[in-house]
Simulated scan of single mutants.
Amino acid sequence: MPVQEDLANPFGMDEECRNCPELASCRKQVVHGYGDAGGEVIFVGESPTAAAEANGVPFTGDDAGRRIQRILGELGLSRSEPNAAEPELQNVYLTYLARCRHPDRRATDEEVANCEPYRNAELRMINPELIVPVGQRALEELAIEYTTRAPESFDADEEHATTVRGRGFELLPMKDLADLTDADADAFVEHVRENVFSRDYRQTKGRRSR
């Protein structure tokens, strides 16, 4: 665990990555993870929006980012206003399946696979207790690794604001941000406050003391 001096890319991952030549040729910058490197909660989205790419910070800069940032504030995980370009986060880390944005299409399966070592490294180093897959694709990708259920059995809309037991983690699925209403956001916050943060959600897996 490094001594953290900056919330942006705290593990010093390659910001000039060229594992996906087509993405590298059109991206503005790589958007690696951002937040508390010792956090117990990780939010994992599919890939940066145009605003997040411009900021270099996941889940910021547009309406979708403000929805996430508002949720983080209400859960006590952010000290900043929802429109902050570089939010002051505590006990939470934000990242993506794919760290580069193509302006005209979603990341391919191969591109997501090329980014998997970055995500796996973050998860190993942070060793979180709670993982929030944001949207269907993130939920299916994480389900492959961290649950015993078939990925196709998950539906982000139906599983939204619930808890799914994983292998060493709990997954807290969230609907895709494009479909997330204020009522959905409120339901997620209520579930986490009343059913997760209100109890001891920590697993027995040799975590360092806090």
Rank of each mutant, 00 (worst) to 15 (best):
A50Y: 08
E111D: 14
R193F: 01
K175Q: 11
Y34F: 14
T108M: 08
N127Q: 09
E129P: 01
T162S: 14
L7N: 09
G45K: 12
H32I: 05
L94Y: 07
P21L: 12
E170Y: 03
N9K: 11
L89C: 12
D182W: 00
L172S: 02
R207Q: 07
D14L: 05
D14P: 02
E40I: 00
Y118H: 13
V112R: 05
F188C: 04
V3N: 13
P117L: 13
R202M: 08
H191T: 01
A185D: 02
A37Q: 05
R202L: 07
V30D: 01
R149F: 10
D179H: 08
V132K: 03
R137N: 11
I68V: 15
H102C: 09
T147H: 07
E46M: 12
R199S: 01
P21T: 08
I131H: 01
N120S: 11
A138L: 07
G39T: 06
L139R: 04
E122D: 15
R27C: 14
T181A: 08
L142K: 03
P21K: 08
E190M: 05
L142R: 00
F43S: 04
R137C: 06
M1W: 04
P173A: 13
A52W: 00
A143P: 00
E152F: 06
A84Q: 04
D6N: 12
E159N: 09
R193K: 11
R101H: 08
E145W: 06
M1N: 10
Q203N: 04
D176S: 13
E86C: 15
M13P: 01
V41P: 00
D14E: 10
R70T: 15
E145L: 11
F154Y: 11
H102K: 10
L180S: 04
A52G: 12
R119M: 14
E88N: 11
V192T: 06
G35W: 03
C100Q: 15
F43V: 13
Q4P: 03
Y118L: 13
R67L: 15
R193D: 03
K28F: 10
E170M: 04
E110L: 13
A185Q: 05
L75V: 11
R208V: 11
N195C: 10
A138E: 02
T181H: 05
N19P: 00
A178P: 02
F188Y: 15
T108Q: 05
Y201E: 02
A183N: 08
P21H: 09
M174E: 04
D200L: 00
